[in-house]
């Protein structure tokens, strides 16, 4: 079975490192981008099976990245999970309205992250 490729768009290198170790340990291919622009580019080039997306980032913020992904032919059906340190009702609503499939609030349990990824990938088939 082919390894699934996960793209993480996140400006915090330490966070990227942690997620990389976790996902690689769970047998995923891992690709990272460190700002929104790079993320959109890599989403096109790498054709990941799922995208993890931070919200607060330089250049293009997470909401905008998500909206653009949904308009892009290559990624419009790629599952997106938003990872955010912001909380509150408005965050949940904004996450869902920009086209993300799910969201997780930092700090999150890594088990939850892996479970959500697997659930979305299974749904996609």
């Amino acid at each position: 079975m082919n390894k699934k490729k996960i793209l993480l768009i996140e400006d915090e290198p330490s966070q990227v490192m942690m997620v990389r170790f976790r996902l690689e340990a769970n047998n995923f291919d891992f690709v990272a981008a460190y700002d929104g622009e790079e993320g959109l580019k890599k989403a096109q080039e790498e054709k990941p099976n799922l995208i993890l997306l931070d919200l607060v980032m330089p250049k293009v913020d997470g909401y905008e990245v998500c909206r653009r992904l949904r308009r892009s032919p290559a990624n419009k059906n790629t599952p997106v999970i938003i990872l955010t340190a912001s909380i509150g009702n408005e965050v949940r609503e904004k996450c869902l309205s920009c086209g993300a499939n799910d969201y997780l609030i930092k700090p999150f349990e890594s088990a939850d992250l892996v479970a959500k990824i697997k659930a979305l990938l299974e749904k996609k088939g």
């Binding site: 330490s14 340190a85 700090p107």
Partner: peptide, 10 residues
């Protein structure tokens, strides 16, 4: 939250 998340995951 951001550093907490990193620390916790570490």
């Amino acid at each position: 939250r951001t550093p907490l998340a990193i620390t916790k995951e570490g």
